[in-house]
Design a protein around this nucleic acid. Structure first.
Length: 280
DNA sequence: CTATGGACCTGAATGC
DNA sequence: TGCATTCAGGTCCATA
């Protein structure tokens, strides 16, 4: 489900509702990808001071009662994995079979619903903590921020021999581009997904850089992509699936040229592209 | 260091 | 209908 746009849409739908909420109850279900890393009791009484995002992680900054604006009580790193979604609801509805982490607060209940359990909620005292560094330390540039510099992007890609699709998915150059948006952005700029990074000239990479920012921004504005079950924290589905031009469209005609969309496998993930619009 | 494949887990869709 | 197979929005880890 969740690439950067879906995570950002979740963040925006959540932040104004949960900020200031005081944690009263923590319920854990079946194990997620990683253990929480602290006793659930440790979270009781803390308040959610801010909700930020790094790549596909949401960061819930926690504050103690004595310093409610300082985020001095650590951070919860939330990852939605493949099938996760966060829902925030007033009141306390029954915990469903796929709700594997629930924060009960005085403002409502936040639940991570994740059937496949590739997601995780990890507590870290701060971002210098070893667990936080392991998860966030190697991540590349934020594509919707000013740090997403053209020169750095071009330079980094041209140092890689891997296929450009894999470079985008890897997250070490730029974060947040997942399997849907990688295929989509390469189609937009006419680059073949198997083209090695170091064979792309500066002009094409500059256009790719620009297209990544634009595509992700557009997807956020459309509420993300809902292929099966994504929804924001208030239950709204996304609409960007209506703007998808190649992902999941193997065998169907390209909207630009009419040629049949190809499906190939790279790194055990499906890639979709048009061999006419993306010749190399 | 890179590249590759396996692992984690459930559910929906497809095929025989 | 029933059962087996394939696929799915992520990413860490072991192995070569």
């Amino acid at each position: 489900m969740p690439e950067l746009p879906e995570v950002e849409v979740t963040r925006r739908s959540l932040v104004h509702r949960i900020t200031g909420a005081r944690i009263q109850r923590v319920v854990v279900g079946k194990p997620l990808r990683w253990a929480l890393g602290c006793p659930t009791d440790r979270l009781i009484g803390l308040t959610v001071q801010a909700v930020t995002r790094r790549g596909k992680y949401l960061l819930l900054w926690l504050a103690s009662v004595s310093a409610p604006t300082a985020a001095d009580a650590g951070v919860l790193l939330v990852h939605l994995g493949m099938s996760g979604s966060l829902l925030f609801e007033v009141g306390s509805l029954p915990v469903g079979p796929h709700d594997h982490f629930v924060l009960g607060t005085d403002l409502g209940a936040l639940r991570l619903r994740d059937p496949r359990r590739f997601g995780a909620v990890v507590y870290a005292p701060d971002l210098a903590d070893a667990r936080a560094v392991k998860l966030l330390g190697h991540l590349g540039m934020e594509p919707l921020s000013d740090e997403f510099d053209v020169g750095r992007f071009v330079g980094a890609v041209r140092r890689c021999r891997a296929p450009i699709k894999q470079i985008l998915l890897g997250g070490q150059v730029v974060v947040g581009v997942g399997n849907i948006y990688a295929s989509e952005v390469l189609h937009r700029v006419g680059i073949h997904p198997q083209c090695p990074g170091n064979q792309l000239d500066g002009g094409r990479l500059e256009r790719l850089h620009k297209a990544i920012g634009l595509l992700l921004q557009q997807a956020v504005e459309r509420g993300g992509t809902t292929l099966r079950d994504f929804s924001s924290a208030d239950g709204q589905a996304g609409h960007f699936q209506a703007d998808v031009s190649v992902y999941g469209r193997g065998g169907q005609p390209c909207f630009s040229c009419g040629h049949e969309i190809q499906r190939i496998v790279q790194g055990q993930r499906s890639t979709y592209f048009c061999a006419v619009c993306q010749p190399c």
